[in-house]
């Protein structure tokens, strides 16, 4: 039996904070409280344990260890108290999958209408995986895909099917 195109695993222990604000005005305050520089359009900044992703011109997503959630929420809210801003714990509404392996990109090529080869190393791309919305960024071993919690089973099945052994996209 051939090998699967990639290893699919679900991440359960990430905290996530949604930040909506005028990033021009509030960028420094966010960076200070989040401990990361504010990413440019379509990018992610990272310090190893945390990631700060650009979701839209007025929205960021901070990914961090669950243990740091409460403190960081407070820090962000304090830092943005004088701004028109929204800081929300959205840790529970997401399903996160890792797609790791040499052919991880091929798995996503079957599901996302996105030119993955043009995505920069530190890129964050929001798109769809088959019929549901998702966001994608890279890791050294492959990709991370985040979607909504209610469709976690769908996403897992989708990714596993796309990674099925023997289905590599290499020319035959």
């Amino acid at each position: 039996m051939a090998e699967a195109l990639a290893r699919i695993s679900q991440v359960q222990d990430w905290g996530m904070i949604q930040i909506r604000a005028d990033l021009e005005r509030a960028g420094d305050a966010i960076a200070g409280a989040a401990g990361l520089t504010v990413p440019g359009r379509g990018r992610v900044t990272s310090d190893g344990s945390r990631k700060l992703g650009w979701m839209s011109p007025d929205e960021l997503l901070l990914v961090l260890p669950l243990s740091e959630m409460a403190g960081t929420l407070t820090a962000l809210r304090d830092a943005l108290s004088t701004e028109h801003a929204l800081v929300l714990d959205v840790s529970d509404m997401r399903a996160v999958f890792r797609i790791h392996g040499a052919r991880a990109r091929q798995v996503l090529m079957k599901l996302c209408p996105t030119d993955l080869s043009s995505m920069p190393e530190d890129g964050l791309r929001r798109t769809r995986a088959a019929q549901v919305a998702c966001g994608i960024w890279r890791e050294p071993e492959g990709y991370v895909l985040i979607g909504f919690r209610s469709v976690a089973d769908y996403l897992r099945n989708l990714l596993t099917t796309a990674a099925a052994p023997g289905t590599q996209l290499d020319p035959r």
């Binding site: 019929q131 469709v151 099945n157």
Partner: peptide
Amino acid sequence: EARGELFQPLRKTP
């Protein structure tokens, strides 16, 4: 792939 279990995304509550 959109057939059987994957015909459409089924949303499930906790």
